[in-house]
Amino acid sequence: MKSDNSSGKSGCSCSIGTARSDRRSFLKGLSIAAAAGSAALATGCVPSVEAAAPEKMKLRWQEFFKDNYRLMTQEEKEATIARLERLAKLQDDLDIQMSSDPPIDRVLYGYAFNISRCEGFMECVSACVRENNLDRKTNTQYIRIFEMEPGKLDPSTGDGRYYHKVPVENKFYMGTQCFHCENAPCTKACPTKATWMEPDGIVVVDYDWCIGCRYCQAACPYYGRRFNWGKPEIPKDEVTTRQHYLGNRIRPKGKMEKCTFCIQRTRAGRLPACVEACPTGSRVFGNLLDPESEIRFVLKHKKVFRMKEELGTEPKFWYFID
């Protein structure tokens, strides 16, 4: 193939190259169109060509440029909550009450799971899905329950996919969810600090700040995190409308989410949905900094252990036996 020794000979395009320049300009136009089209597609503008109200666009524009929740002032927090409530009304016709409850002073949440008492009823899973507005299309579940063989504590030896009458003789049941580690590998891994541990011990995610790189999901040793691979779908009449910005508000697609110890409930003094739903009372929740709390009683008087303790992640979720 002859090479162009074009050290400055720009005259080629005049007469010889009319056909060539036509082809060139066609290719140029094609590539420009491709670039523009891809830019439009990438921003997702093309799908939502429906008559988007100017108010909705303005709210989304403002939401796009907001700061990380942890760094917001109280006014900014209230402003973004107002915008999110309004957007929920405009987009999905939902009346939600979002709160920005701060952590309660001198509280560090702890959780205990009684593996002698759990009978595998999975009421906790069901309650969590309803309370936290989890995607029904992909059946996202924060909580997993394993049917375990006595003598082995590793969930990999258990069956997390059972569906038969429970409890089965000679099996015990163990549940996992995000353990809200004190030394969490996930918060260390996040490149934008979109996930962090709040002062009351809850590891939270700012869904709007997350870039969706899923590094935290790779770092979590307990399968605690879930990713919104698509847009979450929840039937309108099943949406829990009392929400928290860092908790059970409906997440955008492409963002990480996880158990938040029902931050919308616990910061109002209520028990998480899983604890409240458990029919056998296998779940214990409370304030680790209160020496008189139930969780401290469990830690003091029961034989407790944590999962994968050797990793040094210091989870605030203990298992115990009666």
Binding site: T43, K188, P191, W209, G212, R214, P252
Partner: peptide, 25 residues
Amino acid sequence: DLGGPLQAWHLIPVIGIFNFPSSIL
């Protein structure tokens, strides 16, 4: 690969948060 590529500006140090040196990413 990012789930939220439009939020990639969150990585830029002054206008976003850059979790250096903790995060290997």
